[in-house]
Nucleic acid binder design. Sequence first.
DNA 1: TATTGTTATACTCTATAACTATA
DNA 2: TATAGTTATAGAGTATAACAATA
Lengths: 142, 142
Amino acid sequence: MPTRRTDPLTLEVVELIGTVVARYHDEYEEAAAQHALTGAQARVLGLLSLEPTPMRKIAEKLKCEPSNVTGIIDRLESRGLAERRPDPADRRVKVAAPTEEGRDVARRLRESLHFAREPLGELTEAERTLLRDLLRRMLGTA
Amino acid sequence: MPTRRTDPLTLEVVELIGTVVARYHDEYEEAAAQHALTGAQARVLGLLSLEPTPMRKIAEKLKCEPSNVTGIIDRLESRGLAERRPDPADRRVKVAAPTEEGRDVARRLRESLHFAREPLGELTEAERTLLRDLLRRMLGTA
DNA sequence: TATTGTTATACTCTATAACTATA
DNA sequence: TATAGTTATAGAGTATAACAATA
């Protein structure tokens, strides 16, 4: 059972993490808006650019109901950034995939996400290693 | 001009931060939902519990248009969690303030935000100090 | 004239429930 | 029967524009 700490140091770290979260979120929305995308559209396009994905799977990754994905893909599709493909193995399934333009937008989107890349440039390699290990332990990854 | 790094170490740290952001966001929404609040309502109630705030100021803190705040405060007010008060110094201004029940909900909300408190319990004090300093430098705070 | 808050409008995201076509 | 995706619906957040009250 982990200790629940309320000392000033822990509270400061919590606040710093809150600041990181807020800044990350703001920069993500801003980058999406530069490409006339909503946050949800940008996230889905990012997913698809990694791998064409069935509608249901997209909902799982977004942690939302499958019915919502229909509209998001509709909007990406109407802008020529994504398309629905049949799954030869299961005719119920529709696999959403980025178009060539969609991949291009996703790439430029990724590049405009300076956050946590430029700021990390301020740290030495040893410091980045340290930060990685601390974050891993916080997240229970290692 | 900071260096834009794309080495594996930096990319892993970026991904870890993305994971932190996602987990933080999910836990926040979940905590809000436990009190039948949306994320936006919970954020505003949290603000008000620190200090009664004019509508316009709330919009600035939320980085949204003032017109949106009207509806959010309306919903908090209809649930008896917040109220609008006149500003004696400027009769155009309406100051939103939490009711006693609103303060109580805000307090319980804060307490249910385990994130970044329990995980930090896994770290020693020296490690938390290190993490604080690295985050500060990343954010340009120090 | 400028500012504060509101209203009206339209769009997107969200969950729920009912539907269809496949399996 | 069960599953994948859709449609229909309703609520909430968002931006924009126009408005009333006050400065």
